[in-house]
Amino acid sequence: MQPDTSDAHAIVTCRGVSKIYAHGAVEVRAVDGLDLDVAAGDFAALSGPSGSGKTTLLNMIGGLDRPTSGTVTVDGEDLSGLSAAHLAELRLHKIGFVFQAYNLIPVLSALENIEFVLQLLGIDAKERHDRAAAALADVGLTGMEERRPSHLSGGQQQRVAVARALVARPAIVLADEPTANLDSKSADDLVSLMAELNARSGTTFLIGTHDARVIARARRHIEMIDGKITSDTTGDLADVVQ
């Protein structure tokens, strides 16, 4: 049950990835020459102090932002050459996102939010509905189909976001501080849910977080400081932390 990271097919590969912001005359190296592989099926936590570059790295892996230098490959596809439209296409097919907040389209119901992604994929109405309903059931929200986001609790909203991130069966789910806005019970539940979905579907998770609960449940723990990876521990070590 212990995946061998070195041999497993890498879903994400970062090679010499840097992101440099110019703050006036001062350069900020948000991500600094970073190498990283994320293996298929991984459930990895990315932690580090505020400003260490977690969000910047996740955004570059998700094709929402472009590195200043270096290459990012997702599921075998090098992102550097892709146009905005191609990146959108890639996100649609290969990447699910869960953000800290404002994950849902406010004018759509919970079910419609999930269906939306399937609709972008061109899946017909019947299948769309069935898959979205099943995804909602998977995150324990059966009965909430018609609710608009404003009528869902923070925890419920995050669950819908997780359901939506998974419904298109992406290669990887990128989550940035998914539990930061939740009370500890809801946060616990969300982490358990993600871990369970990872175990059940084998979907790869890379979660940027400060949250000890997330780090505790992760199979792999990557720590960043000043845009560099300072520690990367897998499996048993993470269990030891627990």
Binding site: G62, L64, A84, A85, A88, E89, L90, R91, L92, H93, I95, F97, F99, Y102, N103, I105, P106, F116, V117, L120, R164
Partner: peptide, 16 residues
């Protein structure tokens, strides 16, 4: 603007 960012993250093409 946040919503448009979300739509892009979900994979909606800019043209759409």
């Amino acid at each position: 603007v946040r919503e448009f960012g979300l739509l892009q993250a979900l994979g909606m093409r800019p043209s759409l």
